[in-house]
């Protein structure tokens, strides 16, 4: 298991390189230029060229990439061209907001999603099952920015329970967490329910009943445990998605965070910042998937023995 973990981590290096090349190319091949945002109207082409040279933007792309990569290897994310601050500072300032929001949303969707799925599965085809699954269907089809706007309208504008926007207090977290978490909860609930119903039909479950174990115990200790295997995979994939998917939600709620930083940097063509933000999101996706796989291996001896 340990050697597998190490192997998987090493495997991330080539993936990381490919991702970094893709990110770099996308940004530099898209039309637009950060210098336009820097130079004052009416400056001469000479002044513009001088600034371009100062940031190394006049060199060949390959060279620019290698410089960026070698700095990256030393932990240096560069300096923002338009925002004029070390990119690392900008990230450090914004990342905690995104992590809090993403982490809480993920926790919300995991705990409540699994609970809803279990309750639905244990009342299969009954009234409770139908009610829960209708709610889930509703939650999973609604786009998150729209859900966010509705929540703002109801709970912030009408009822005034929570602030409309910002990130000053814990109350300001409630609506964004709900906005991201409800969709995730719906997904997790659906997967949990289906996986439980599928597992319940397996031979070994019949034998557990034949051994005289109480039905509830079979559902919670045996069936649920199997049902969680696909859920873990989905959650692992969602870790990256939640950080990235928070982009629109941060925008709707005007919260600081990686998403807001990315949008701002994009509109200003601030290459180093955009690159760093995209890299962070890509890393989150990669680490999330890895984490999902590791947890799954820890939960399933068959996966473990396939690894060695």
């Amino acid at each position: 298991m340990l050697s597998y973990t190490i192997r998987r981590l090493l495997l991330l290096i080539p993936v990381f390189l490919v991702v970094s090349i893709v990110i770099f190319l996308i940004i530099h091949l898209v039309p637009g230029d950060p210098i336009d945002n820097l130079v004052r109207v009416g400056s001469t082409p000479e002044q513009k060229a001088e600034i371009t040279a100062r940031y190394g933007l006049d060199r060949p792309l390959v060279e620019q990439y290698l410089i960026w990569l070698s700095q990256l290897a030393q932990g240096d994310l560069g300096t923002a061209i338009v925002m004029r601050r070390p990119v690392a500072d900008l990230i450090a300032q914004n990342l905690p907001y995104s992590l809090t929001l993403g982490g809480l949303a993920l926790l919300f969707s995991t705990v409540l999603g699994i609970a809803a799925g279990v309750i639905a599965a244990m009342n299969k085809e009954g009234r409770i099952d139908r009610t829960v699954m209708t709610g889930v269907l509703f939650g999973s089809t609604m786009p998150s920015f729209w859900l966010g706007l509705i929540l703002i309208l109801v709970f912030a504008v009408q009822l005034r329970w929570f602030p409309v926007s910002g990130a000053r207090s814990w109350e300001s977290l409630v609506l964004p967490v709900l906005t991201i978490g409800l969709g995730g909860m719906a997904l997790v609930a659906r997967v949990t329910r289906i996986a439980m119903l599928e597992t319940a039909g397996k031979d070994f479950v019949l034998l557990l009943h034949a051994k005289g174990l109480p039905a509830r115990r079979i559902q919670l200790r045996h069936v649920l445990r199997h049902a969680l295997l696909p859920v873990v995979t989905i959650l692992g994939l969602r870790i990256g998605w939640v950080l990235g998917g928070a982009v629109t939600v941060e925008y709707v709620f005007a919260r600081p965070g990686l998403g807001m930083l990315l949008i701002k940097a994009l509109s200003q063509h601030d290459y180093p910042v955009v690159q760093a933000c995209l890299l962070m999101l890509a890393m989150a996706v990669m680490l999330g998937t890895l984490l999902g796989d590791l947890i799954q291996a820890a939960m399933d001896p068959r996966v473990r023995s396939a690894l060695t």
């Binding site: 031979d203 070994f204 034949a210 051994k211 005289g212 939960m299 399933d300 068959r302």
Partner: peptide, 24 residues
């Protein structure tokens, strides 16, 4: 009935390949 199952009436299922909980 549940107290009878496994205690006084035991069952051996048709397919041993799939009759055991694979993760225990």
């Amino acid at each position: 009935y549940r107290r009878l199952r496994g205690r006084r009436i035991a069952f051996i299922t048709q397919n041993p390949m799939t009759s055991l909980d694979p993760v225990i």
